Simulated scan of single mutants.
Amino acid sequence: MVKVEVKPNVLQWVIKRMDNFDRLKDQFPNIDKWINQESQPTLKQLEKLAKMTAVPLGYFFLPNPPEEKLSIPHYRTVRDEGAVRPSPNLLETVQTMERRQQWMRDYLIQLGNPPLNYVGRANLSMDPKLVAQDMRRTLSLEDGWASKQSTWQEALRNLIRKTEDIGIIVVINGVVGNNTHRKLDVAEFRGFVLIDDYAPLIFINGRDGKAAQMFTLAHELAHIWYGASAAFDLKNLQPADAEIENACNKAAAEFLVPEDELIIIWKQVGQSEDRFEQVARHFKVSEIVAARRALDLNLVTKEEFFLFYEDYMKRLQQQTEQTKTNGGNFYATQTMRIGRHFAEAVIRAAKEGTILYREAYQLTGLSGSTFDKFAEYVDTGRYV
């Protein structure tokens, strides 16, 4: 068997990337000896290690570990001491989305599509209220649009559709690709946005509760208006201490729950025990978004907000644990993980012969009959 020399510092770097070191030791009992250079792994063992740790095989042959950085700013609500290393799951997810975005951009340019005029249309000197109004107008959402939806869940689905209809790729996924063993950490990021004047892309961490996804989507939409790519955690729905994050948060809050309208509603329900529920029901947002907006406008104190937030999250966790799911519709899940707008473009390009089916498989992560059935599912419009 061919032995391969791997630098100890590279192996130590790989170990730090692994969430479950005990599992790594179980699979590779001699890894300490490799680090101490008492023995060396075989190529087959390295291939297995690369797959388990999601490290490209070529990295094991480097003299020093690579310095992995996100290509976009990562705003965190609570600043950690020192630099925060992005997880392999976040890095790979951003890189995958960047590849898809680049393909989409090239495809749209080849079709002769013009750039999207709303990308970067706002600036930090603008009133967030005006930015929110322009967002609603561009998305063809009339004033009070959400109150006409039956539930906030339906309002969220409608907002996603409207967002995709104006040319924005929207992806919702809680794992890396389709690997259910590699879950995305909500504590690390709730979402990110990649700016492009042809194919802006919004990614929402599907591991987050749907109650918070509405605010994340609105926040990411605001980033597109301001023309700023970013990843963010929005801990407790609070922005990081950065000017762009505060601007996006204000625009998102105004977009979902307009101040003038809330003030009128609050005069009627502000003293009620179920005030957040009543506000949420009117604006078709979750109670947590309603409470967050009340805090924005100093209608409640921070203490009141956080007491409610903690209680709400506990109740939500209990409901989640009690709810049994059967995994849902595979193709509906894939539509969210790939993005309807992007999927339609890839399917169309493959059918027209603009790209080979092999490339379509690589872009979507689906192949063969699974891709064919997915294409049929998307074409029939049953994802709506």
Results as ranks from 00 to 15, higher is better:
Phe374Met: 06
Glu81Pro: 02
Ile195Arg: 02
Lys210Asp: 12
Ser147Val: 10
Tyr59Met: 11
Ala294Leu: 08
Thr380Ser: 14
Gly270Arg: 01
Leu307Lys: 14
Trp152Thr: 11
Trp145Ala: 09
Glu92Arg: 11
Gly327Arg: 11
Asn249Cys: 09
Leu108His: 02
Glu243Asn: 06
Ala212Leu: 13
Leu130Trp: 04
Gln153His: 14
Val171His: 00
Gln45Arg: 10
Pro41Ala: 11
Thr354Arg: 15
Leu256Pro: 05
Lys302Val: 10
Ala345Asp: 03
Met313Asp: 01
Met97Leu: 15
Ile195Gln: 02
Pro88Trp: 11
Glu376Met: 05
Gln40Tyr: 14
Asn236Lys: 13
Arg315Trp: 10
Ile288Ser: 02
Arg161Trp: 02
Val257Phe: 02
Met104Tyr: 10
Ala228Asn: 14
Leu90Phe: 04
Ala199Cys: 03
Ala247Leu: 08
Phe330Ala: 11
Thr163Ser: 07
Ile72Trp: 08
Glu98Tyr: 01
Gly227Met: 08
Leu70Cys: 07
Val186Ile: 14
Ile169Tyr: 00
Ile224Cys: 03
Pro65Trp: 03
Thr216Ile: 12
Ile160Phe: 02
Pro66Asp: 00
Val131Gly: 04
Ile265Glu: 12
Gly353Val: 15
Glu359Lys: 13
Ile31Ser: 09
Gly353Asn: 09
Tyr309Val: 06
Asp32Gly: 06
Gln362Ile: 01
Arg281Leu: 08
Arg17Glu: 06
His74Lys: 10
His181Gly: 00
Pro73Asn: 06
Ile265Phe: 06
Val384Asn: 07
Val384Pro: 00
Pro88Tyr: 09
Met18Trp: 02
Arg207Gln: 13
Ile347Val: 12
Ser87Pro: 04
Asn173Tyr: 02
Arg348Cys: 09
Gln45Leu: 09
Arg275Ala: 07
Leu116Cys: 04
Met18Cys: 12
Asp106Ala: 14
Asn20Ile: 05
Arg293Ile: 14
Thr163Gln: 04
Gln153Ile: 15
Val10Tyr: 10
Ala332Gly: 09
Pro8Tyr: 10
Glu254Pro: 07
Leu46Tyr: 05
Pro8Phe: 08
Asn205Glu: 10
Met18Glu: 12
Leu217Asp: 00
Ser272Trp: 15
Asn20Met: 04
Glu81Gly: 15
Ala132Tyr: 09
Leu130Arg: 13
Leu91Glu: 06
Val4Met: 13
Val84Thr: 14
Leu217His: 01
Tyr107Val: 00
Met126Ile: 11
Leu237Ala: 07
Ser150Trp: 03
Glu164Thr: 01
Gly365Met: 02
Asn329Arg: 10
Thr53Gln: 03
Ala155Asp: 08
Met214Ser: 09
Glu142Cys: 07
Phe276Gln: 04
Leu307Asn: 15
Ala50Trp: 03
Ala199Ile: 07
Val279Glu: 10
Gln238Leu: 15
Ala199Tyr: 01
Trp13Lys: 01
Arg337Leu: 13
Lys16Asp: 02
Met313Trp: 12
Ala83Trp: 00
Val300Ala: 01
Leu124Glu: 13
Ala360Gln: 04
Phe189Pro: 05
Thr325Cys: 00
Gly174Tyr: 03
Asp134Thr: 14
Ile31Asp: 10
Pro41Tyr: 09
Gly339Ala: 04
Thr138Pro: 04
Arg85Asn: 05
Val193Gly: 03
Phe305Tyr: 15
Asp296Ala: 04
Pro88Gln: 05
His341Trp: 13
Arg207Lys: 11
Asn117Gly: 06
Ser286Cys: 07
Gln319Trp: 02
Gly270Lys: 01
Gly167Thr: 07
Glu47Asp: 08
Leu91Gly: 08
Phe232Gln: 10
